[in-house]
């Protein structure tokens, strides 16, 4: 039916500069990283020797903390996905409720952290959460709740939770905005029909709003998943992986191995993430592009 000669009208070479940049600065390092993960590449010696699976054995033998870093990454990813989704949906529903005043301003206020740098958010909270001088503990003290004051970022049992809370504070506005857009897209006919059938608010939420929002939420969850696995900035700014290695994740460990000159170890950790995400991506592509049939 189509009148066009596609290859002449849309010549392939238009896509080549973008493809080239992507390959050189993004894909090639990833693949090269897997190759180097089988070597002893470091900053001390110029030659690079093949060492087989030694780096992988070192990571998974349990002798070092590397498994813990991987688990921290998974925990951070899983928990931030949940907190952002849950709070994002709750805020979206509150701020689309007809009784709530000043909806737009409040939405913007919750969205503001989203446009700020992760690093800045990290520094803001590092100041506020300082156990002695910070706003948080001072506020608790003045409210007569000094028992609740904690070493938010330097207590190794608490640090990861604090980091997750700060990351949620930053990222929840994104989810909220997306869900609000989704809610606006739901036809009011459904709610009117439910109203006639005598459905309560909770029933309407559970049987209409949430099921219809599912595709939207799924998309954002995927983005949160890939963000969580790659997290670096906010942790580096808040705790730099500490105290001890309580909040160390894969990418902060990569940076510290890199700074120490253990390039092979850094690239192995990064490579594990690369392969894992590659496998996940087959699933992700299907979620992001559910109707690539036309």
């Amino acid at each position: 039916m189509c009148l066009l000669n596609f290859n002449k009208t849309y010549p392939t070479y238009y896509a080549i500069p973008a493809l080239l940049l992507f390959v050189i600065f993004f894909f090639l390092p990833g693949v090269l990283g897997i190759f180097y993960s089988f070597t002893d590449w470091n900053s001390l010696r110029a030659e690079v020797n093949f060492v087989g699976l030694k780096n992988y054995l070192k990571i998974f033998s349990g002798q070092y903390d590397f498994v813990k870093y991987i688990l921290n990454t998974v925990r951070f990813t899983g928990l931030t996905m949940i907190t952002k989704t849950v709070f994002g949906i709750i805020f979206a529903m509150l701020l689309t409720h007809k009784l709530v005043k000043f909806q737009n301003i409040q939405r913007m206020v919750i969205f503001i952290p989203q446009v700020m740098s992760f690093l800045i958010v990290g520094l803001v909270f590092k100041s506020l959460l300082n156990p002695v001088t910070g706003f948080f503990n001072n506020f608790l003290k003045s409210a007569g709740l000094s028992v609740l004051a904690r070493n938010w970022l330097s207590d190794s049992n608490l640090a990861l939770s604090t980091v997750i809370a700060v990351d949620t504070w930053k990222g929840v506005g994104y989810l909220m905005i997306i869900v609000i857009a989704g809610i606006h897209g739901i036809s009011s006919d459904y709610y009117e029909a439910a109203q006639i059938d005598g459905a309560s608010f909770l029933q309407k939420t559970w049987h209409i709003t949430l099921p219809l929002l599912k595709p939207v939420i799924l998309n954002v969850t995927v983005l949160n998943l890939t963000y969580g696995l790659r997290v670096f900035d906010i942790i580096y700014a808040l705790t730099n992986g500490g105290p001890g290695h309580a909040t160390e994740v894969i990418n902060t460990a990569v940076y510290s191995e890199f700074s120490k000159g253990n390039y092979a170890m850094g690239t192995t950790l990064s490579g594990i993430l690369f392969v894992f995400v590659m496998l996940l991506s087959f699933f992700i592509l299907r979620v992001l592009e559910p109707e690539e049939k036309s």
């Binding site: 992507f22 990833g30 995927v222 690239t267 993430l273 690369f274 592509l285």
Partner: peptide, 22 residues
Amino acid sequence: FVYYFIILGIALPINNVTLMKI
């Protein structure tokens, strides 16, 4: 293929150790 290949980068981590080498 090129389209899917590039948008794979939405999820993939950047390997800064080898990118440094490049």
